[in-house]
Amino acid sequence: MKKQSFFRKFLYSQKVAPYVFIAPFVITFLVFFAYSIFSMVMMSFQKVAGAGTTFIGTENYRVLSNSIFQKSLKNSIFYTIVSCALMIPIPLVLAVMLNSKPMRAKSTFRSILFIPALTSVVVAGVVFRLMFGELEGSFMNQIIGMFGKAPIVWLRTPSTVWLVLFFVCLWRWTGVNMMYYLSGLQQIPADLYESASIDGASVMQQFRYITIPLLKPTIVYVLTISIFGGMAMFSESYMIFNGNKSPNNVGTTLVGFLYRMGFEQNNLGIASAVGVVFLLIVLVVNAIQLAINGTFSRKEN
């Protein structure tokens, strides 16, 4: 009985209970995030080899001048920019269409566009690799063959590699971003549009002056996760090239390079240095983006 009363006293205490409630988050954060980041920063200044580690200063950061690192950084940045340019406006237009009154079979289209997000990247990657095969009989080559085009070596030509990657990105994430936009659109009161149409605003004006400003928080959110998602892209490239080994590193991303250094070449020190650089880039880019969009400015309400 005494034990139970101690337990009760502990849980029912106004001072202790709140800490119990937040403990799961705090513990997982400390173990899996704070400690890992700290240890990553530490390791980036160390030579990690089997049993022991030795401090070697900024030696690992010499990797920044590595040409493959630079290429993969360029790839990641290029991928991020183009995927953001595709993944912000296209789902927005689709969402507005799906949210409009005259649209029929809304939930059918919504489901169809959302299905790709439910498939595993691995399955999708394998299927796309087969679809974009080099042989004449591959799915995409058959399709372009119908238009009288010669078969293309999709995954070994730099330009078409990007085409395939963006195609996978669009296919997979359009539905998700569209869902974010749809939930944002449904928050906009209908009488704003009614009022605007009574006052003589055209459909384009309504989009420009009502939809965009009221959807801005959602757009900023989608942009933020898209920037991070673009920089962190790895699994699509890994699956499409059947491993982390695209020809002439045409599809190697920053995370791909990190993986190669850390787990394929067992050089965790360099991998950590790449991770630190990656973290800084994403932080800075998103901070700049959020500052421009006014997320940090104090909201008066």
Partner: peptide
Amino acid sequence: SAHRNVAM
């Protein structure tokens, strides 16, 4: 509604 000239 735009061409009905009503205010609501």
